[in-house]
Amino acid sequence: MFKRYSYIVLLAMLLVTQGCVVTRGTLGEPLKEESITQIKKGVSTASEVVALLGAPERVVRGNDREIFHYYYYDGKSPALLLLVLNFVRMEIKSDNLYVFFGRNGLVEEVLYSKRTPNVEFKLWPFGD
């Protein structure tokens, strides 16, 4: 009896989820908040920042300063591929961290924002 119900439940699950595709893609490594909070303006050096976060993804030179740019991208994409109709939606957001170094080699400014926690699996492609 239990075995029969198991088959029915399995069949129902297969019927309900057929055509469903769930994909997730990331670029880079997530930025650790505890490492970022250890960066101190006017105190930390470039080598200390590298020891905390690793080498930056990009080094930008601007306004006579060296800027380390770290980033992380997270994307979630559910899809419904039915016999007659396909819905696909993908949401991608990024975290960015910029560490500015002054001429004395010490951290001058830290700019950071985290958007990836807001990435959701949204299937419905219409509306917001």
Binding site: V84, L85, N86, F87, V88, R89, M90, E91, I92, K93, S94, E109, L111, R115, N118, P125, F126
Partner: peptide
């Protein structure tokens, strides 16, 4: 609906004019 496909890719949050109304040239800082 046969053969219809709808795809949408959204990257980052939209920055609307209302979001940047606080910026004043010569005053606002980075």
């Amino acid at each position: 609906m046969t053969g219809c496909s709808v795809r949408r890719v959204v990257v980052n949050d939209v920055v609307a004019p209302s979001n940047v109304a606080f910026i004043q040239s010569g005053t606002t800082t980075l």
